[in-house]
Design a protein around this nucleic acid. Sequence first.
DNA 1: TTGGCTAAGTTAGCATGTTAAGTTACTGGA
DNA 2: TCCAGTAACTTAACATGCTAACTTAGCCAA
Lengths: 147, 147
Amino acid sequence: MERSLSFYLHVLTARLDRAADRILRAEHNVSYSRFLALALVGELEGATQRVLAEYLGVTEPSVSRMTGVLAGEGLLDVQPDPAGGNRRRLRLTERGARLVAAGQRTLEDRLAMVVAESGVPYDQYVRYTAQLLETFDRLEREREVST
Amino acid sequence: MERSLSFYLHVLTARLDRAADRILRAEHNVSYSRFLALALVGELEGATQRVLAEYLGVTEPSVSRMTGVLAGEGLLDVQPDPAGGNRRRLRLTERGARLVAAGQRTLEDRLAMVVAESGVPYDQYVRYTAQLLETFDRLEREREVST
DNA sequence: TTGGCTAAGTTAGCATGTTAAGTTACTGGA
DNA sequence: TCCAGTAACTTAACATGCTAACTTAGCCAA
């Protein structure tokens, strides 16, 4: 196989995810998936599960199961939307918010170190990555419309 | 959350993987994970399961289960190493090799299109990505030694 | 020849992703 | 008023990661 971009991205991301998982479990006793969910809820105060699923890039059943677990652990507060409809509003609990803040510091410090060590220009790489994501999303949406 | 690099990479890769999965299932009736395993076996003629695990960036139990399934489907040939030891030599069957060749063409064409559309310079992005992967691997190895 | 060591692979059980199908809560027209 | 439609969520079953613990095969020293 001519080592392709998708393969490199796949492996790089898998390793970063696993390292993040290891660090978060060791220092904050939470998996990376759960951490990502909590971090986004922190940003999207009062989001519904559907919105969270969209931002996380996973399906609604995944979010449904995850929010159940996180609420059970006291990190997340899940309430029926007071405005009505079959909706749940999501918020971080006090503990959830502390965990997100601490975890973010830990992770960003480590990744910045790896990037610095590699010599890859951080800002440009982030820009490229975000740009690819945006293009990919747009093409996928166009594909869906045409289906 | 200040949208961090790890988050962008995580989401971009998750979407690329899912798109690849969708395409491969539709056109070649195989999942992306299985396709990656087969593609690497094609490159690493006669590799052991341990070597394949290392190249795929997954654990040996994962490979063990996967090779069982792929052999059952007639895409992979798993034989005890004639040189002895508790080893299995992996090779593609005729069908496996055809599938790999066809799948690679399909996927690379599509991804190249996305990258072109995004305006991100393909070669440079691949270089950066490979460079990050290499640095990350080195740092992880150093970490393991020091543990 | 045998008991321990090492390398490679497997098994078991869990986490978290998926799709397909079912449920719940509201809305709007007859 | 009530039934059909729509949006949001849940449940069930499966795929594929993981770690921990076990098994298998060969080697070597006593």
